[in-house]
Each structure stands twice: as C-alpha cells, then as structure tokens.
Design a protein around this nucleic acid. Structure first.
Length: 572
RNA sequence: CGGGGUGUGGCGCAGGGGUAGCGCGCAUGGUUUGGGACCAUGAGGUCGGAGGUUCAAAUCCUCUCACCCCGACCA
C-alpha cells in the first residue's frame, strides 16, 4: 500500500475529549472515526487490524471444531418474548417495527436465533454435539458508551454456541473453548486473567470472564495471590472480619443526636463498624425492598438483584424512602412489618448490633436477629473487597481493574426448553439440548491490545495482527535515484509476499518517522542517500531504540528470515 | 437516570454586544530534508439548533440537541 493513497490521516494533536489511551491512539492514527456516541467507523488501517484479529479468532474456533455461520442481525421480537429475555435485556434492546407492524429487534446476541435454527436440524442425539459460530454485528443500547472502542453500541462479536446431549458434553466443550480462548489471547499478546463471573442478562449457570488487567478497565476483579482464586467483583465471595458475638443483651433505645452515617454511629456509641447494621433501600419491579447488612460491608447489587430475581432494579430515592415511612439515617428492620426485608448472611453471625430506631435522632443498641427482627430472605449479598479473606485459603484478597475481553457461559437447557429445542435420546425419549455460549468482542479486543501495547509515540502492534509486516520509509524520495530504488524495493517486497506500507510521500524524515511510530507496524525499513551510499538499507523494530542495517543486494532474504523468526514472538 | 463539562473552518483552540481570529492541516510556487522544516500567496466558517431581548447577538436570556467525563452507592 502506498501511503499517499491511503485513506485516513494521522493527526498531530491528540483528539480532545478522550480519556482512554486506546481511544486516543486509534483516533490519532486514523484507524477509527466516531460517528455518534458508541458508534464508530473503521478506516482502512483499523479495519485491516480488525480483520487480522478476526483471522486469529476464526483459526482458533475452527481448530476447536466450530463451524462458521452467519445469523441475522434483524430478529423477530416474538422469539425474545418466548425466552422472556426481552424483559431481562430491557432498554438495551434496540427495537423497531416493520411496515407490516411486526416488531423486530437488532440482535444484541444470538441465542434465540441460533436455537431456533438448530432445533430444525437436530432431531437425534446422533446430530450432536455441534458447535456453531459467527462474526457478527451486535447492537446494544448501552447505558453509557465509553472509552472509544471499549464500550460501544454497535460492535462485531465472535459468538459461538455449543449444543450437547449432556452436561458432561457441555463441560468438555466449555473446557475446549477455554483453551481456544487462552490460545487466542496469547497469539494477540494479551495477558488475561480467567475469573468467575455473574451470568447477567444472558442467563445460565457457570460463567467465566477473561479479563485484561488495566487501570482504566471497567470491571473490578477480586483475586487471591495465594491460591489464584479470581472472580468478578459482581460474583466474588469473601470472608469478612468475624462478627462480634457476645451474649444477647436487652434491646435498648439510645439518643443519637446529629448522628447519621455508620462511621458516626459507631464512633458515637463506641462500637466497631462491624457491630452496626446498615439499612439500604431499593425498588425492585416496583416493590420497595428493605435491605440490611453489617455496617462495615457494602451491598453487591448484582447479587441482590439475583436474589430478588427481578428485572428492574434501582436504589430508592429519598422521597420513596419517606413515602415508605422510614427515617433516613435512623432506619432499621426492627418493627418493620409491611416491607420485604432482605438480610445479608453477616447479620445472623453476630449479636448486639447497633441499628436505627426508625425515629429521628435515636438508635437501638443490642439488636439481634431473629429475636428483634426477622428477614424474608437471608442470603450472601455482600460485596467482596480488597483486604477481605479468600473464601478458599483465607489469604488476603486483592482488587484490580480490567477489561472484559471474553465471556463464556454454561447455559444448560433453560433456553432450549423455552424455544422447544429437543432431541431424541438413545432411549427414544425427548431431551432438551444442553447449551453453552462463548463470546468475544472483536473491537474491544483491538482496543485492549492498544491499551497493553503502546508507548508515548504510539501503537506497537503484535506482528500477528499488524496491518502490514513492514513500514517502508524512503527519505529524500524526490531524489530520482532514491525514488527509483524505493519503488523497486516496494515491488520486490510485494513479489516476495511481504506486506508493506510504502511511505512514498514527500515528507520530512521527522514526519515519516513519527507516523511510523504512531501507526505501530513492528518493522521499519529506511532508505536514504546515507544508506544508499553504503549500499545498505536500515532496519528497525518498533520495540527497539537502535536500528541496524542490511546489505541492499540481499536484504529480502534476510528480511524474510527476520520476519519469520519474529512472527511467533508476540508474547511481549 | 442524576451530576459535571464542552459545542466557533477538516483537527486543536482564542474571542465574550458593533455581523469572526490563531496554530495545525489543505492548495499553488519556491527553498529544504535522519525525528513533526521554512518563505510567499491562497481557499475554507458565519460561531450545535430553535426562539427571545436589542438599532445590533458567536457574545445576554429561555428552551432544545449532540458529544465527553463521573456516578449509577449505604440515607
């Protein structure tokens, strides 16, 4: 490719109004362009990289036994009603109506469609297992798109669906896909952490995420450095500091003027925060929910939402709290009769808690569950935090942030049953197909690679996905001799199947070198009067400061040897 | 959905009642060329949108839209 013909321009200044480094570099290098919030165009270079990532992903999916298909983005709404996921996806589902007034959705994922397809072709256990996958555009009306390609509303996803006759078969495919994912991240030079995850709107049982650890990642991971337990914070379990257990004392009301927060209450009464109870209020599917948890811990809203099995969920506003007859700052479950109360397990493990008296300026001391109050549900709804103890080895848990670059689910049979996907077993009876699904956001993968592989000058592509193998920079290209040799080299490289970006522009060396660094192609070739005089060509790796030279007569052979040697060297 | 911020040539910004200016980029010509060269000439916007105030609005007021960032938080 001649640089002079390349569509898209590199910018001198970083684009304004951007925060994440991948967003900045991808815009600055002219690889992507924004159209609207969370909606991007890929320009030729960015698209080339994306396609190379797709090739790596395809390769691994094929090796794992996947067969590629292409399912429709436009899907009947009625399919979503059958699984009920029109409700769980809620507002993030893009809905539209056709001219015949039929409701359609722009697919945010493809379980419904793929099951509906598979059920027509799978009748017998002999037809299973089968693994289908696609690379397809997904549409999700995200709450807040952010970070350039990191969270968008339209994106290409690789989604694979496994169909098995049994849980054992599913487990095998789950394991196979796990390995395929690990291989693919390694090819891309991405270090990932596999963590236990909440299955969210997709539904299902077991679920794992693959996380690239970076500070500006949206997801929080709790992990144990001792035993390698790792889970998304939404899912993570932990051991908190032991509750205080003393013989129950009589409930006692005390005046606590001007005392509101847990810290203030604990200090005023003279007990540690873990001997207080915190009351928090939510509205779930329109119902007011009273949640009570130990004062030193926080509520994991994902766990709470799962416990409540609701589809809409939010914190109650001050007005709603007042309307429920509660006193902010002094609320407690004691004496609450008409509201649904959810308690965290932590409240049953201790005694003599301090909690509100449901009266402005007063608290209770020595509250005990179930003596003084009862809860409708007692579950683990606590947020695991750094510093808590590991649930397996009691080591101190750590927390870090990361980008979710893959998510796999053991779906089981619930969607199959809802959509009528059954097979006939050896015994002649019908069984629901056992399903798994496995997703990777390709654009997010691209952004993650940039987040991990860049320096202050620009992107550093791993050779496995670089848009070109070589960036060729002839200097003084208006010199006829340089120009003719440069063109010959360009031709030579192409004839030798080396992909090359040929900077044939009449730009100064600084411009060319800076653009080369920004674009991040791993190998740079430079031809100039200086190198020509010695009958040499300069060669420099993007990752290295120093350049070296190759003899002009024989450079192609040596270059190809170097490329071959380094092609697998993606674990940077 | 709440909070904060920003909208002025392709990009980055300044201007803050008297109908727009800088840098980069772009075009033409010339001189340059190993880490974002220089000179000259030139093209390109009517200031996110709508309404209002005013003799006069990019500038003041009202509404609205878009984009960015934070939070979806313990009462």
């Amino acid at each position: 490719m001649r640089f002079s013909n390349l569509f898209g321009k590199t910018a001198r200044q970083m684009p304004a109004e951007t925060e994440s480094i991948s967003h900045q570099l991808l815009l600055k290098s002219g690889m992507i362009a924004q159209e609207a919030a969370g909606i991007y165009s890929y320009l030729p270079l960015g698209w080339k990289v994306l396609q190379r990532i797709e090739a790596v992903v395809r390769d691994e999916m094929n090796k794992a036994g996947g067969q590629e298909v292409l399912l429709p983005a436009l899907q009947p709404f009625s399919l979503w009603e059958k699984t009920g996921r029109n409700v769980s996806f809620g507002e993030s589902l893009f809905c539209l109506t056709d001219r015949k007034k039929h409701k359609l959705v722009l697919g945010p994922t493809h379980e419904e469609v793929v099951i509906n397809l598979v059920r027509r072709y799978v009748q017998s256990y002999r037809d299973l297992p089968v693994l289908l996958y696609q690379l397809q555009t997904k549409f999700r009306d995200e709450l807040r798109p952010r970070g350039g390609l990191l969270r968008v509303r339209e994106f290409i996803m690789k989604d694979l669906y496994s169909f098995d006759t049994s849980e054992e078969g599913l487990a095998q495919n789950y394991e196979r896909m796990t390995q395929a994912y690990k291989n693919l991240y390694a090819s891309l030079g991405l270090p990932v952490l596999m963590v236990e995850a909440d299955s969210g709107a997709i539904g299902g049982k077991d679920s794992h995420e693959f996380i690239v650890i970076t500070d500006n990642g949206e997801d929080e991971v709790i992990h144990c450095p001792q035993c390698n337990y790792a889970a998304n914070v939404e899912k993570a379990h932990s051991f908190k500091e032991e509750s205080i257990k003393t013989p129950p004392l009589p409930l006692q009301e005390i005046a606590t003027p001007e005392v509101k927060t847990i810290e203030e209450v604990a200090e005023y009464v003279g007990v540690p925060a873990r001997q207080t109870l915190k009351s928090v209020f939510y509205i779930a599917d329109g119902e007011f929910i009273f949640v009570v948890i130990r004062g030193d811990t926080n509520i994991n809203e994902t766990k709470l939402k799962n416990v409540l099995q609701c589809s809409t969920f939010k914190m109650a506003t001050e007005a709603e709290v007042v309307r429920a007859g509660l006193v902010s700052g002094s609320a407690s479950p004691i004496g609450i009769k008409k509201l649904k109360i959810v308690g965290d397990s932590s409240i049953a493990s201790g005694t003599n808690f301090v909690t509100g008296a449901n009266k402005q300026g007063y608290h209770f001391q020595n509250a005990n569950c179930p003596r003084d109050f009862q809860v409708d549900l007692l579950k683990d709804i606590a947020l695991a935090q750094a510093g808590d103890n590991c649930p397996f080895c009691k080591g101190k848990l750590l927390s870090c942030h990361g980008i979710e670059v893959g998510h796999i689910f053991k779906l089981g049979t619930s969607l199959s049953e809802k959509l009528g996907a059954f097979f006939q077993g050896e015994d002649g009876s019908p069984y629901p197909i056992v399903m798994g699904c496995y997703g990777i956001g390709i654009g997010r993968l691209l952004a993650s690679v940039v987040e991990k592989h860049h320096d202050d000058k620009g992107i550093i592509w791993p050779s496995s996905i670089s848009p070109y193998q070589v960036h060729f920079c002839p200097l003084h290209i208006n010199d006829p001799e340089i120009s003719s040799i440069a063109n010959k080299i360009y031709k030579d490289l192409q004839e030798n199947n080396v992909t090359v970006l040929f900077d044939d522009r009449e730009e100064s060396p600084g411009v060319k070198f800076n653009d080369a660094d920004l674009l991040g192609i791993p190998l740079r070739l430079t031809l100039s009067p200086r190198t020509l005089q010695k009958q040499e060509i300069e060669i420099k790796w993007r990752t290295q400061k120093q350049a070296s030279t190759l003899p002009l007569q024989d450079y192609v052979k040596e270059l190809k040897a170097l490329l071959k040697e380094n092609t697998n060297d993606t674990a940077l």
